[in-house]
């Protein structure tokens, strides 16, 4: 009986790990497509994401958006905070902004893209001129997700 319980726990644990792994894998690939660095510093306010990114050796979490190469914005408050403080940062040191809500894309021309859900489907979107702004060239597999304008 004990063995069965352990097996069940391991099985569900494995499923949970799979979900976290796939999320990390997705963002890992995404971030390293956005930045040419070998190690990327990321700012994200959401604890779930922070936990996920912690398990990566090549992603470094920062406490402040200004210290990050990429800022992942998942909520309105963080968006406002990041956009407000962004004025103070030097142009060449401004982090790349990426969001998880497509509505946020309208809020700033500095946001290069979004990963969000629409009608039950995951959507990945990049805005071409915004990528250009950061001199980002995405790999071929992302080309179909790049749009000229919203």
């Amino acid at each position: 009986m004990k063995k069965v319980l352990i097996l069940l726990i391991l099985f569900y644990g494995h499923l949970y790990a799979l979900d976290r792994d796939s999320t990390l894998k997705l963002y890992h690939k995404l971030f390293f497509s956005l930045s040419p660095k070998a190690e990327i510093s990321v700012y994200v306010n959401d604890n779930e994401y922070r936990k996920i990114f912690l398990s990566s050796k090549r992603l470094q979490l920062t406490k402040e958006p200004k210290d990050a190469d990429i800022v992942l914005i998942t909520d309105e408050r963080t968006l406002e905070k990041v956009l407000a403080k962004r004025q103070d940062i030097q142009t060449d040191k401004k982090p790349i902004l990426f969001v998880t809500d497509h509505h946020f894309l309208d809020r700033s021309k500095d946001i290069v893209g979004a990963f969000y859900w629409r009608k039950g489907r995951s959507q990945l979107l990049f805005v071409k001129n915004r990528l250009d702004q950061y001199h980002i060239v995405l790999p071929a597999e992302y080309q179909k997700f790049i749009i000229d304008e919203l």
């Binding site: 497509h102 629409r118 009608k119 489907r121 995951s122 959507q123 990945l124 979107l125 997700f145 749009i147 919203l150």
Partner: peptide
């Protein structure tokens, strides 16, 4: 036809 948070006219959609 969604009641909650309907998509805007002309919003982009990647059908997967």
């Amino acid at each position: 036809g969604s009641k909650n948070d309907p998509e805007d006219f002309n919003a982009i959609f990647f059908p997967k």
